Amino acid sequence: MVVNISIFNLFLQADFLVKIVMTVLLGMSILSWTIILKNSRTLLRASKNVDLFEDKFWSGSDLSSLYQDVKKRKEAISGTEEIFYSGFTEFLRLRKSNSDSPNFVMENTGRAMFLTVAKAVKKLERNLPLLATVASISPYVGLLGTVWGIMHSFIALGDAKQATLMMIAPGVAEALIATAMGLFAAIPAVIAYNLFSGKVSKLEHSYSTFSEEFYSILYRLVLLRQ
């Protein structure tokens, strides 16, 4: 006798709770892959923007001309461009009215850039906690379905007069599928979370380094005008 134990049929034959577990895990897997694809594009774009703007910044361009160019696109800027824009905007604003207080000017300019760095990093970290949650709880949700499915199979086996492997195979199979689905949702989420965290840390370092170097340039400018 041939028994059809395809995944779809096992899902249809599964206990109600196991069906709920499988559905939840499928949803978590879809959510996880959606975040992975979205964050991949975001981080790739952020890395390219850092390289492009820093090449332009260190090419010897006049700061005022570069500032005017960035200002025209201020609604669409991010990363180092946004750090440059916020820092230079604050610097120009304060220097006009506090030309005799360079420390005050630079303190507030540095604070503006620090807040912009924090904002940019927070934007890059968006959805990472959710990805970490999927990675950590998916195996346990799958295990819940497995335990319940196996328990249900053995309870049903206890009422049978003659126990055979064929009687419990479908129940055990559907239970193990729950574990497999849990791992299928968790493994990509774990890998992606670790990769994304590393890329975010690298970008944060780039932002902080640029902020410090730009701060030094502005500090020299304000001292020259004393």
Results as ranks from 00 to 15, higher is better:
Ala180His: 03
Met167His: 12
Gly182Glu: 05
Gln162Asp: 10
Ala156Trp: 00
Ile155Gly: 00
Val141Ile: 15
Gly171His: 10
Ile155Met: 14
Leu183Gly: 03
Leu128Asn: 01
Leu128Ile: 14
Thr133Asp: 07
Tyr140Lys: 08
Pro188Glu: 06
Gly142Ala: 09
Gly158Arg: 06
Val141Cys: 03
Asp159Glu: 14
Ala135Met: 02
Ala173Trp: 06
Arg126Ile: 05
Val134Glu: 02
Asn127Asp: 14
Pro170Ala: 12
Ile177Lys: 06
Ser136Phe: 05
Thr133His: 03
Met151Gln: 03
Ala135His: 02
Ala180Tyr: 04
Ala163Gln: 14
Asp159Lys: 15
Met181Leu: 15
Tyr140Gly: 03
Ile177Ala: 09
Gly142Asp: 04
Ser138Glu: 08
Gly198Cys: 01
Ser138Arg: 07
Leu143Ser: 04
Tyr193Glu: 05
Asn194Asp: 03
Asn127Met: 08
Leu176His: 08
Gln162Met: 12
Met166Glu: 15
Ser197Met: 11
Ala132Gln: 01
Ile177Val: 15
Thr146Arg: 11
Leu176Thr: 09
Ile177Gln: 06
Asp159Phe: 10
Gly142Arg: 02
Phe154Arg: 06
Ile191Asn: 01
Thr179Lys: 09
Leu195Val: 10
Met181Lys: 00
Ile137Gly: 01
Met166Ile: 10
Tyr193Lys: 08
Ala186Phe: 08
Gly171Met: 10
Met181Thr: 08
Ala132Leu: 02
Gly145Pro: 11
Lys199Pro: 00
Leu195Tyr: 13
Ala160Glu: 14
Thr146Gln: 11
Ala180Phe: 11
Gly198Ala: 14
Lys199Ile: 01
Phe154Val: 05
Met166Tyr: 08
Ile150Tyr: 07
Ala178Lys: 09
Lys161Tyr: 00
Met181Gln: 05
Asp159His: 13
Gly198Leu: 11
Leu183Ala: 04
Val134His: 02
Ala132His: 02
Ala185Gly: 11
Ile155Val: 15
Thr133Val: 13
Ala178Asn: 11
Leu130Lys: 08
Leu157Arg: 06
Leu176Gly: 06
Ala178His: 09
Gly198Glu: 06
Ile155Thr: 13
Trp148Ala: 02
Asn127Ala: 02
Ala156Arg: 12
Tyr193Trp: 02
Phe196His: 04
Ala160Ser: 15
Gly171Arg: 07
Glu174Cys: 05
Met181Tyr: 10
Ile191Trp: 00
